[in-house]
Design a protein around this nucleic acid. Structure first.
Ligand code: FES
Ligand code: FES
Lengths: 147, 147
DNA sequence: TTATTTCCTATTAAGTCGGTAGAGATTGTC
DNA sequence: GACAATCTCTACCGACTTAATAGGAAATAA
């Protein structure tokens, strides 16, 4: 399961994407519109800002805005920012690789082999789908749409 | 990430699969051979027995044995038994469906749509790969091998 | 100067993870 | 029957994560 936090993040980003790349929205507006606890959303947006996905302005007429076009932000990227590694095994993570201490060797590991394939299939979808694809309404996106 | 427990379970089942369907192995033998904490493995095997995957016998010369042929036990099934639902969202789980209370409707939910596809891709692999496939050494198995 | 808004840190309650501990029940052997 | 081996069951533990909530500090606009 993805975390509730990641789900909130995606909904918030989707709202910002639909507002437009330069356009800013305030926390309260997003929280109200998307049914997200306000103070929780504060943390999430702040986090996304620190990680370079959003810009912000304080004070009156402040708010958050996307720093990148929606078709350049993938679901996989957002998920990794919020929930951490997508990989089902530490030895398969690209962002947080860790050797499996209880396995003999990665090349021979039969568990690793099957999960590598499942992981590849999974991330093929998540890393190919952008916020723009999600907004579009159609389930098709870059890779699958072309296939 | 899958849990350490699930990883242990798969390794133990793989050991039992290689011993043969009727053949039994003792907890200690599996624990030693697979580098799994003995008492933890006890719980895992007991759990797998209660869930109908293993048979057991107590007392001297006791042990555990597979109740089904290795080519009839999928990785996906084991994972669901140990870790619970594989689905990335409650509204996508077949074994533990729960409505998403913070979403408007499932048909319109854009988050649901992308994760449904990722989930389908993921489980296509996990539900098609059996213990026998894993033992086989080749990365190919039923569905992918045929495609 | 005041209202508005984001920024930041701390705290919390409940749950999960990866074990450990120890007594009980069953089976085989002498 | 005694005894050892083995699985069975329940409880417990510390560390960590999750989904928030709280409250004040800092910046901005009017
Ligand atoms: S090497 Fe990572 S699961 Fe075996
Ligand atoms: S309906 Fe389940 S994520 Fe929206």
């Amino acid at each position: 399961m993805i975390s509730q936090k990641a789900k909130y993040a995606l909904r918030a980003l989707l709202a910002l994407a639909e507002a437009g790349v330069g356009q800013s929205m305030q926390i309260s507006d997003i929280a109200d519109g998307q049914r997200i606890p306000r103070k929780f959303l504060e943390q999430i947006l702040l986090d996304l800002k620190h990680r370079g996905l959003l810009s912000s302005r304080r004070g009156k007429n402040g708010g958050y805005a996307l720093l990148r076009a929606p078709d350049l932000i993938t679901v996989g990227e957002v998920l990794r920012l919020i929930d951490g590694p997508l990989a089902p095994l530490p030895c398969l993570s690209r962002m947080a690789y860790r050797r499996c201490e209880d396995c003999d060797g990665e090349d021979d590991c039969r568990i690793r082999r099957v999960f590598a394939e499942a992981h590849r299939a999974n991330t093929a979808v998540l890393d190919a789908t952008t916020l723009a694809d999600m907004s579009g309404g159609s389930a098709h996106h870059r890779i699958l749409g072309a296939g």
